Computed example of a mutant assay.
Amino acid sequence: MLRKRRVLSYLLERRLKGRLHFTLLDPDKVTPREAAELAVLAGKAGSDSILVGGSLGVYEPQLSEVVESIKKACSLPVILFPGNINGLTPKADAVLFMVLLNSDDPYYLSGVQVQAAPLVASMGLEPIPSTYIIVGHGGAAGFIGRARPIPYERHEIIAAHVLAGAFTGSSIIYLEAGSGAPRPVPPEAVALSRKLLDKAGFKETLIVVGGGVRDPSTARDLARAGADALVTGTIVEEDPEKLAPLVEAFKSA
C-alpha cells in the first residue's frame, strides 16, 4: 500500500512558513556512517529534508544501508532522488517520481517510470510527482540522462519547460545545473518561471533549484528570484561547515 502524501504535505506546509532547503547525499560518495553525520549537520543547519541518490554507482545493499543510517540519526524525511531504477529502496519515506523533460531518450520520459511504478507501489514509497529539467552545464545527470541542456541564457525556454511540468501534474519542478556546475541556474530564469506559474494558477507548485550554488550570495539571489527550495550536495561533501551560512542566506532573503 502506498503511504499517504505525508512528505509532500509536510513540504507544502513548511513552504507556507518559509523557503525550503534539501541536502543531497550520494550513496556512491559517502559511507552510511558519513551520511548519518552529514544528515545531523544538515538538520542543525536548517535543512528540511535529505535527498539520497546519484547518477552512477548506486547499488544495493549500500543504498538501503545509507538510508537506514540517516533515519536512525535524524528525524528529517528521506526522499529518494533516483538516477535510475536501481535508486529505489523501501527504507526511505518518499521518492521524487521524475520525468526528465528535456531528455532525447524515451526511456527517461516514460520507460523507466513504467518500470519503477510497480516497485514504488510494492515498496510503499510515497511518490512525489516531479519534473526534472537540465540547464546549462548539466553535469553527470545531463550526460547519463541524454538530455539536451537548455542554454543558460534562454530563460524563456527554461520557463516554458517549467510551465509544461506543472501542466502535466508535477508538484515539484527541479531545475538542475548539474553537480559541481560552473554556474547555477540563472535567477532570471527562475523569476520568469515563477511569474508564469503564478499567472497560470500554480502558486503551490514548488520550484527547486540545484547545481553550482557555492556561496550565500548566489543562494540569496535565487531566493529573491522566486525559488521555493534549494538543493546542495557537492558543498556538503567538500566543506560541510559552509552549509549553514548558505541555508541561512537562502531562507532569510
Rank of each mutant, 00 (worst) to 15 (best):
M1R: 10
L2V: 15
L2A: 09
R3G: 09
K4Y: 11
K4E: 11
R6W: 06
R6A: 10
V7T: 08
V7D: 01
Y10A: 02
L11G: 01
L12Y: 02
L12W: 06
L12M: 06
R14Q: 12
R15L: 12
L16I: 02
K17Q: 15
T23W: 00
L24V: 05
L24C: 04
L25T: 01
D26Q: 01
P27L: 07
P27E: 08
D28Y: 07
V30E: 12
P32E: 05
R33V: 09
E37I: 11
L38Q: 02
A39L: 08
L41S: 07
A42F: 04
G43N: 08
D48S: 08
S49K: 00
G53R: 10
V58G: 09
Y59S: 15
L63M: 14
V67S: 04
I70F: 01
K71T: 03
K72E: 13
P77S: 07
P77C: 08
V78L: 05
L80Y: 00
L80Q: 00
N86Y: 06
G87K: 01
P90H: 07
K91D: 03
A92W: 00
A94T: 03
A94G: 06
V95T: 05
L96T: 02
M98N: 03
V99D: 07
L100F: 05
L101D: 03
P106Q: 10
P106G: 08
P106H: 11
Y107E: 13
Y108S: 03
L109G: 06
L109N: 02
S110A: 14
G111H: 12
V112N: 01
V114H: 13
A116R: 00
A117F: 15
A117S: 15
P118N: 14
V120G: 06
S122I: 11
M123Y: 14
M123R: 09
M123L: 15
P127G: 14
T131H: 14
Y132P: 00
Y132A: 04
I134R: 00
V135L: 13
G136Q: 05
G138W: 12
A140N: 13
A140E: 12
A141K: 04
A141Q: 05
A141I: 09
G142E: 12
R146Y: 08
A147W: 02
R148C: 10
R148N: 15
R148S: 15
I150E: 02
I150S: 07
I158T: 09
H161K: 05
L163W: 13
A166Y: 09
A166W: 05
E176N: 11
A177R: 01
A177S: 11
A177N: 08
G178Q: 07
P184R: 09
V190C: 04
A191S: 12
A191P: 04
L192Q: 13
R194Q: 13
K195L: 11
L197T: 15
L197V: 15
G201Y: 07
F202V: 10
T205V: 15
V209C: 09
G210V: 07
G212Y: 12
G212V: 02
G212D: 12
D215T: 14
D215Q: 13
S217M: 08
S217Q: 09
T218G: 08
A219N: 06
R220S: 14
R220F: 05
D221P: 00
A223D: 03
R224Q: 14
G226F: 01
A227K: 02
D228W: 03
D228G: 06
A229E: 06
A229P: 06
T234M: 11
T234G: 04
V236Y: 00
V236H: 01
E237G: 02
E238Y: 03
P245G: 10
V247F: 05
S252N: 14
A253V: 07
